[in-house]
Design a protein around this nucleic acid. Structure first.
Length: 584
RNA sequence: GCCCACAUAGCUCAGUGGUAGAGCACGUUCUUGGUAAGAACGAGGUCACCAGUUCAACUCUGGUUGUGGGCUCCA
């Protein structure tokens, strides 16, 4: 397995070199940036006199094929700095890379006879080991990833050890695209976007149902874990944002409005309003920890070009909560939170979230002692919880270290959902304190935390995770009653009334479509239960149920079905549902 | 914000310098049917918006807005 991974790495790395040669051959004067392998392919950055487009891919691919077929050997050599500078004369980006390599490190150049690159190595021995490749996309990318630098043209491609593997990969991409929540959002009538309110989702009744169900689900968890829900305003005087630091740090991401002479800011986060709530009353150490939860709507004026379906929007809500506690309570609070978080992710079937511990950034508040302490607290908590995590240096919030949890979407783009952040800054700034045992005022420790992150984003990821086939309890329509002929309309209507009166969601399909088409429509809407009613069912007072996976359950009694639903309001998947129904 | 691409009916998409088409969906009628599309007819579009070129622009040019793929930033 490791060998295969290495082979693929080498193939893709080599393909990047070959693509760079091809581009330079076709478009003389091209300057090259960097060209690494990625998890499924490779890219190379070019400063090319021609504006590249997908129309150029054919030519580039043809040139690459020529190079691959000529079976050129990859070889590496250690070179002196002067030699390297000479050999990359005119290639300003390469020269910058050479300059950036520490003096005590060896410089290596890898060549495949007709072309060479400054490169650490990791190649196939001959170009013809690349059995399949395809260029996929071209996009802009800043040199060295810095937006102050020139924008280069990045060409993306994929490469494989066999044609079959590449075909499988391309098919996987197609399947993933079908699960894209933006497509399913339209076809399942969940939400839509309108030019009149860019990047702010409108939820249709079905989408609204699911959003509310998610909120209710979280409210139940909150009861169990001792959170108290609060409601706070939408718009605040700019003075609050000056105090919180948002005016200086977050202003370009905020919406503002005027009221008479007063400048008002629409909240992009709940934190400051929770601080105000907390300090509006006197607190004893006996009251702590206090956990305020808030599903309030937030607005962030994102830079254009960053919005993305439901996963990056300008108007959203969070399962946001702020925990006010003492220093001694930090560990227990965070452990309890991580416990809750895993419970939630398990309920939704997210088996492989990734945990990141983000440590002190360059721009930060507080002294090093405080950071040393809080970082080691976070680390030991993670270690205690037994979770695997990776460390991201410099990615922490300016007020404290944090743990971020990400989950991938259908196209394997990682999205951050949950987060837990320690904050030693807010309590000082806002005077958030409590009366300790000695009767003295002491600052609280503040913990910011969320599990879904944004409900909108979570919903989007969830749509893709389930491919639109929501678990029974989350399905906006749980059943569709399908009469075999018009003779069964009446009977269907009766059963619909019974099921609906028991709190189930769905209706009888009394349209004048044919039976087959009714099944097709229910199937397309991914309704969990298609209940078929014909002569047989009317006669036996029973139901035939078709599940959306195509499986059939015969001769189910009406009354027992209703009873089963009542006893199993949360059935998480089709298999569980089937098992339950089969017991009838 | 930056680079590139795209914008035609509710949805998915054809299309041409001489003011528009298909399939699905929708409506009406016919059809009385057993597990993913029965049939006929009908309704529908300032071809995103604003300018320019032209006798004539949905089509060419420029701008604006929005969307998509990335970069940067972030829940």
């Amino acid at each position: 397995m490791e060998d295969l991974e290495k082979l693929r790495f080498n193939i893709r790395h080599s393909a990047a070199h070959i693509m760079a040669e091809a581009v330079m051959n076709i478009f003389p004067g091209t300057k090259i940036g960097i060209g690494p392998p990625t998890s499924d392919g490779f890219y190379y950055d070019f400063d090319c006199p021609k504006q590249l487009s997908k129309d150029d891919f054919k030519d580039i691919e043809r040139e690459m094929k020529k190079i691959i077929k000529s079976k050129r050997k990859f070889t590496g050599e250690v070179v002196s700095r002067d030699d390297a500078i000479k050999r990359f004369y005119g290639q300003e980006y390469k020269l910058e890379i050479i300059k950036g390599i520490p003096k005590n490190e060896k410089l290596t150049i890898w060549s495949h006879e007709s072309w060479e690159d400054i490169c650490k190595g990791g190649h196939v021995d001959s170009t013809n080991k690349i059995k399949a490749f395809k260029l996929l996309d071209v996009a802009g990318a800043y040199w060295k990833g810095d937006e102050k630098n020139k924008m280069l043209q990045r060409v993306y491609g994929t490469a494989w050890e066999s044609k079959e593997e590449q075909k499988k990969y391309l098919e996987k991409l197609e399947l993933a695209a079908k699960r894209d929540h933006r497509k399913l959002g339209v076809s399942l009538d969940l939400f839509y976007f309108d030019e009149f309110s860019p990047a702010m989702p409108f939820f249709l009744p079905k989408g609204t149902f699911i959003m509310n169900e998610l909120t209710n689900y979280m409210r139940e968890k909150y009861k169990k874990y001792g959170y108290q829900e609060v409601i706070t305003p939408q718009i605040f005087s700019s003075k609050l944002w000056d105090l919180s630091g948002h005016s200086s740090h977050f202003q370009e991401n905020m919406f503002f409005t005027e009221n008479d002479e007063n400048k008002m800011g629409i909240k992009p986060m709940n934190c400051p309003s929770h601080y105000l709530l907390f300090r509006s009353r006197l607190h004893s150490y006996k009251d702590l920890p206090i956990r305020y939860a808030d599903f309030g709507r937030l607005h962030r004026n994102e830079r254009s070009g960053v919005s993305h379906g439901l996963t990056r929007v300008k108007s959203f809500s969070q399962d946001d909560s702020h925990i006010f506690c003492t220093k001694d309570q930090i560990e227990a609070e965070i452990l309890s939170f991580l416990n809750l978080l895993q419970e939630v992710y398990e309920d939704f079937g997210f088996e492989k979230p990734t945990f990141y511990l983000s440590l002190r950034p360059e721009n930060r508040t507080g002294n090093d002692d405080m950071w040393d302490h809080s970082e080691s607290v976070m680390k030991s908590i993670l270690e205690k919880s037994g979770m695997e995590f990776s460390i991201q240096d410099g990615e922490g919030a300016f007020y404290g270290p944090k743990i971020d949890i990400t989950v991938p979407d259908a196209l394997e783009r990682e999205w951050q959902l949950g987060t837990v952040q320690l904050d030693f800054f807010a309590s000082e700034k806002f005077g958030l304190n409590y009366i300790n045992k000695d009767g003295d005022k002491e600052n609280v420790v503040l913990i910011h935390r969320a599990i879904f992150g944004s409900l909108e984003r979570f919903f989007g990821i969830l749509i893709e995770h389930f491919g639109g086939s929501f678990p029974f309890w989350l399905s906006p329509d749980q059943f569709s009653l399908i009469p075999v002929s018009e003779n069964h309309f009446e009977h269907c209507k009766n059963i619909e009334n019974k099921l609906v009166s028991k709190g189930l969601r769905g209706k009888a399909d009394l349209s004048n479509d044919r039976f087959n088409n009714k099944i097709r429509k229910a199937q397309q809407m991914k309704i969990p239960l298609m209940i078929i009613i014909g002569d047989k069912e009317v006669e036996n007072n029973s139901l035939t149920i078709r599940l959306r996976n195509g499986k059939n359950l015969n001769d189910i009694k009406n009354e027992s079905l209703i009873q089963v639903f009542e006893e199993n309001s949360k059935i998480n998947n089709d298999d569980g549902l089937k098992a339950v129904l089969e017991e009838i």
